[in-house]
Design a protein around this nucleic acid. Structure first.
Lengths: 143, 143
DNA sequence: CGATATAATGAAAATGAATTTCAAAAGCAT
DNA sequence: ATGCTTTTGAAATTCATTTTCATTATATCG
């Protein structure tokens, strides 16, 4: 699965005439090793700890490429940082965001996806992606 | 309906021990007179045109209060600006965002709302709000 | 009605995420 | 290797948002 993602990126790079660089390899490896919803800053720190030479801007630029290549997705929560999550083809999950402890629960619902398609069709709209976030309190934070 | 919103805000202000000020009245009036999805900057410019004295920070601070009071909702699109939309009680709409022309189509779907409640219940989650955005191309931009 | 306490405001400065600039370094085709 | 172009890193820049702080306004209490 990791190899598959690397291939996805290599194919993308090839199709765009991008060069293969040590930095992009490293950043991709580390991104693939992370959990979901990592912010650019967090990833940058991870990268820097094993590769002190790699700069801020490169991490930003590279994550944008990953998003373009379709293997990462930008998500905006409410903490002022852009985060990226992994894109797994054929799977799309949405988020329950707890405003108490900031934890995130993922879920997937096929019926909602289907309804979205219907709604889009009704408006002549061609879906590229979507996101849904439900805000509230998780079981722990409720009481 | 406008009066109702003003009352909502006054009640909120009273409950929080906030003072009633000329600036908040003006900003509320102007916010209520706008269309959906206004950015803070846009609102600030509107406010300034009739009330040059009112400052940037006050508009930011006041919009946050409106959100707390439940009459506005923060929405994050992908243009680097925080926008606010009107909260209409008993109504919730979601967005089709065209990445071609940046237009926004609103829609509402009761079934999706219901499914959200079920999902939340399944996770012991107490919903406060949610947002859903579908990205793609509108009918005009498709061809 | 003042006087007093405290909240709110505005201007400017500060913050912080993200982007741009540009000279140096690295990749790639020949 | 050579030369051309992309990529990189550091620093500077941009831009939205927040904070600071002195001043002003509001509310409360005597």
């Amino acid at each position: 699965m990791i190899l598959e993602k690397k291939k996805t990126f290599n194919d993308f790079a090839a199709s765009k005439g991008l060069r293969s660089t040590r930095q992009r390899d490293i950043i991709l490896d580390i991104f693939l090793s992370t959990h979901e919803h990592i912010s650019v800053e967090e990833l940058y720190l991870k990268v820097k700890s094993s590769n002190p030479g790699i700069g801020h801007a490169t991490v930003y630029r590279t994550l944008k490429l990953f998003a373009e290549a379709g293997l990462a997705r930008e998500i905006l929560l409410h903490d002022g940082q852009t985060r990226y999550e992994h894109v797994v083809k054929g799977e799309h999950h949405d988020h329950l965001v707890c405003t108490g402890c900031n934890s995130i629960i993922e879920f997937e619902d096929e019926t909602i996806e289907k309804l979205q398609s219907e709604i889009a069709a009704r408006h002549g709209f061609l879906i590229n992606s979507h996101k849904m976030e439900i805000y509230g309190l998780c079981a722990n934070c409720r009481r």
